[in-house]
Design a binder for these strands. Structure first.
Lengths: 341, 341
DNA sequence: CTGAAAGCGCTTACAG
DNA sequence: CTGAAAGCGCTTACAG
């Protein structure tokens, strides 16, 4: 059980001062070739590594960033983490992952807990509850303290900071237009309740596309799902009571469930019903039929968010008060698979 | 831009010493009621929070643990993280997530980077490359330094430490036996190469079950897949050239792919071919037909691993040299769905 | 070329 | 009841 060796111990062993050891290890020209070599050899032998915590305290920088997401189980968020991790590592940063579990309180606790020097900045996608409450004081506070925050995906206009999003409205518009181009008229939308920012935007895109093509918007064809558990009945009902041409779902769970229920009702996909999903996850790829979808490229979003955050952290030294925040829009892509004709 | 306030600043404002402020905030009885109240009120007003980094340096404890996983994209690992996070948070710990991307080097770099005081302990599942190389020096070193390590899922007997696993052998045995009980004889196995510890164990369980039932083990029915990309051809070939009764796959990707290819070859699942997978992920649940599978309960594994690690971290104060490591076996469960008759 | 001192933000044993 | 001092492990401006 060889414990970590410190500068102090090396100094003692070698009978020099701590300063000398420190400088030697940094190859400072102040120190004689001789001493430097001696110290370095010794340090190597004992596998000396500077204590990160001490460095953090000294530098007021921890080289750690935190990403707060609502749920890690969602493939999209896992993808984002992977992008963040990648870019962070490339820049010598570590990534702390916090889960809000869609809870406002957990989000607040996590932020407050870490805003005390533990990390250099946050990347966050809002929890549902936070979006519903519209209470963002915890985020504002952190920003006011001078800690940079980058929001992604589920963002809000009420906060000024860097953001990484996709154009949800446009992506939904395109997906809907794609279905319309196929000649479909009765296109249903399975979406979330409006307080989920991305759900709302996607709903708007869908409506815009219909209007643009002079298709009447039928409220009966718009299903807004609140509960993430028991939504099968409402989808089944939607499919049963309407002779649909196509379904546009704002996530892949809704899409795959629609397909499963269609099969149950003996509606053939894609022959009798085309389905498009959102978020290019593992389900869309492996389900039968595989699902056409709007691909969000979470890895890219994560990478971009990490880059923006790190740039902000490292430029803050210059303490410019003319904060210029930017919003990066990551392009989406319509991936055609078997579920659309 | 109100910067974080420190004890020093409070002391100055209130014209008392830093010690007095510190003690007042800790409600020390040493300090007069009067001073205490004054300090606490002031601290509250300025929203004082102790600097975590300084505390870590002082206490030699960071209240942060790190989990290193091969891939976050695998649903199973995301599940484990969620379990770790949950238990860690309950105990006041934060979770750093590192991805090895199945690379030995990344694993080593991550560990070395964090072993310098940044965290209190590791939870790790070995990368493929590490398992192949059988080089565990980085892990041994960390343990020798006195930092606790808990391994899970992909573990090795070459290292003495706490472990959380499932009984892969038994689970595979049970799954195979389940198929045999249905009256199936020609049961194929789609598994990984042997150096992946869990793949090997599952293969052994499969073979044991066959032998136990006096079914001859046919090497042609055992497909060991190395490449995670291009394995479709070999599976298709397996299905085409053998009149199979059932397939047991060691993960859900293999299982769902087998089903997809069976459909392509006009083999009906489950009527003509039963399929069982491993790892109860989102694919098994949503694919059509939904897939019967051995459920691993990653959340539970993660929670258990976190608990063991934290216990170890917090008991280390007592510095007992009689290290007694334990291996926790999490029970698995056979989830029956549509892919088996 | 080497080292003592101050400091990052905190805690706590000790003195007064 | 209050505060100066030492210390966690490091860096760096300054003195010699």
């Amino acid at each position: 059980m060889r414990k970590k060796v410190t500068l102090k111990q090396i100094a003692k062993e070698l009978d020099v001062s701590i300063s000398t050891v420190s400088k030697s290890l940094k190859n400072s020209l102040e120190i004689s070739e001789d001493t430097r070599q001696k110290v370095q050899a010794f340090a190597k032998l004992y596998n000396y590594k500077p204590n990160n915590i001490a460095l953090s305290l000294k530098n007021k920088k921890t080289k750690t960033i935190c990403i707060i997401i609502p749920e890690i189980i969602h493939h999209f968020f896992a993808t984002v983490i992977s992008g963040v991790e990648n870019v962070a590592n490339e820049n010598g940063y570590n990534v702390l992952v916090c889960l809000s579990d869609e809870s406002f309180d957990k989000e607040v606790i996590n932020m407050e807990m870490l805003a005390n020097g533990s990390i250099d900045g946050f990347i966050i996608s809002l929890s549902k509850e936070t979006q519903q409450k519209k209470d963002f004081h915890h985020i504002v506070e952190v920003i006011n303290q001078g800690m940079p925050v980058v929001m992604f995906d589920r963002v809000t206009n009420d906060i000024l900071c860097d953001k990484v999003i996709i154009d949800d409205n446009l992506a939904a518009f395109d997906a809907t237009q794609f279905l319309i181009n196929k000649g479909f008229k009765k296109i249903a939308l399975i979406t979330t309740v409006d307080y989920v920012s991305v759900g709302k935007l996607r709903t708007e895109g869908y409506i815009k596309a219909l209007k643009n093509n002079d298709i009447k918007v039928d409220e009966n064809l718009i299903l807004k799902i609140e509960d993430t558990e028991n939504f099968e009945d409402s989808i089944e009902n939607l499919l049963r009571t309407n002779q649909l041409d196509a379904v546009f779902a704002v996530n892949e769970i809704f899409a795959v469930t629609a397909i499963k229920l269609a099969r149950k009702l003996n509606i053939k996909v894609p022959e009798e019903l085309s389905v498009i999903g959102f978020t290019d996850g593992i389900i869309s790829k492996y389900s039968t039929p595989s699902i056409s979808t709007v691909s969000q490229n979470g890895r890219k979003m994560g990478g971009k968010a990490a880059k923006m955050l790190i740039d902000r952290v490292e430029s803050e030294e210059e303490e410019q008060e003319d904060e210029q925040y930017s919003t990066e829009v990551i392009e989406t892509e319509l991936v055609e698979r078997e579920s659309t004709l």
